[in-house]
């Protein structure tokens, strides 16, 4: 079955407040979606619904393929050296060999032996992105991937997503910062009244 992520009339509700209603889109291999909107518009909730972490209030979500999630929290043990912290998840994904290349492509290879708690905000963000790259999953669900990144790192991120799509992957990117995704399906979430 080919990689796929589709929302069919999905309504997202958080704390009794309707964030978006009857949202539908379908992404196939090589597609991307760019979710934009002001703070509190439901971008993170949309990503969490796509990631199976949150049940939609109404509608149906269908997906085919493994999920790699970049959420607000980096989920890396702070006391471990970066390479080992990433290695824990790579071992779960049975892709131990992929940590080194992922660190290199995000220009973190010189920090491989540094404990995660010593990293800067931007470095941690890139480290979390390295986990997504290393996972080899087809569905990338990225929540504010550009937060804390400098211009060069945002360029790297855009190149990584483009590369991932070229290989038949899907990317769903929620961001309030400009991230250039050519041909991405725009999903603009309204004002959180």
């Amino acid at each position: 079955m080919s990689t796929r992520l589709a929302f069919d009339g999905v309504t997202g509700v958080r704390g009794g407040r309707t964030l978006f209603e009857a949202l539908s889109f379908a992404l196939g291999p090589g597609d991307a979606a760019l979710v934009t909107g002001p703070n509190g518009a439901g971008k993170s909730s949309l990503v969490r619904i796509a990631a199976t972490l949150l049940a939609p209030f109404a509608g149906r979500v269908s997906r085919a393929g493994d999920i790699a999630l970049l959420a607000e929290a980096h989920a890396l043990d702070p006391e471990l050296p970066l390479a080992r912290a990433l290695g824990f998840w790579a071992a779960l994904d049975e892709r131990r060999g992929s940590v080194g290349p992922a660190l290199a492509v995000l220009r973190l290879d010189h920090l491989a032996d540094v404990p995660v708690r010593m990293l800067s905000t931007g470095q941690r963000r890139r480290a979390a992105m390295a986990r997504v790259v290393a996972s080899g999953a087809q569905l990338w669900l990225l929540d504010e991937p550009a937060n804390g990144l400098d211009a060069v790192a945002v360029g790297t991120l855009e190149a990584l997503i483009a590369d991932h799509r070229k290989q038949g992957g899907i990317a769903l990117v929620a961001t309030h910062l400009p991230v250039h995704l050519p041909g991405a399906v725009p999903i603009a979430l309204g004002d959180a009244a």
Binding site: A51, L53, D66, A68, A71, A73, A75, L76
Partner: peptide
């Protein structure tokens, strides 16, 4: 829960 470790297990 706070560090997102459980979320990462869930999506796997």
């Amino acid at each position: 829960l706070e560090a997102g470790v459980l979320d990462q297990f869930a999506v796997r």
